[in-house]
Structure formats: C-alpha cells, structure tokens
Design a binder for these strands. Structure first.
Length: 90
DNA sequence: ACTGAGCGG
C-alpha cells in the first residue's frame, strides 16, 4: 500500500512518520523526500504499509492530523509511470 | 543553498 504524505514540517523526519503510521498498522517502508543540495526534508514523503486496510486506517487517522505544528496531508500515492509494464494499456 | 505546493527511486 503506497501512501503519499505531505504538508509536513521541515523538522519532521522518517522516525516521526514511522511512529505515527505504526499506530495504525505495520509500516513496511518510510521514505522522506530530501533536497538534493541541502539534504533537508522537503516536507513530503512516502509510506509503504503491509496491507491496504492498514493504509486506509492510517490515512483516515493521520490525515489532517496536527504534527509538529503542521496538519498532515495523507493520501494514496499515485502509480508511477512505467515503460510498458503498467496497468492500463491503451 | 531555499520554502509551503505539493507524488519519489
């Protein structure tokens, strides 16, 4: 279950998200998108959970949640484009 | 090296 989370504080780290999402299910992976030059968290990231139900529970529970002074924006991540092995084929 | 809409590897 790929989950997209944004509107994070610039001080928010992976462990913070990990702790928050772990409350609603098993977090498979946590990836914070960092800047290329400064290496600081850009304010958004991706969360992978073990199951879809846990992901929905995390989204429902953590969306618009106040974290470090910012309201989290949690939603389902978009499918990434692929050369030819990607879902819809038209 | 920075800042506030946002979808990465």
């Amino acid at each position: 279950m790929n989950i997209y989370v944004s509107n994070l504080s610039f001080h928010t780290t992976e462990e913070t998200l990990k702790t928050l999402f772990a409350q609603y299910g098993n977090v498979s992976s946590v990836r914070l998108i960092t800047d290329k030059f400064t290496g600081s968290p850009r304010g958004f990231g991706f969360i992978e959970m073990s199951s879809e139900e846990e992901g929905n529970a995390a989204i429902t529970g953590l969306n618009n949640k106040d974290v470090e002074g910012r309201s989290l924006a949690v939603s389902v991540a978009r499918p990434k484009p692929d050369n030819n092995t990607s879902g819809r084929r038209w």
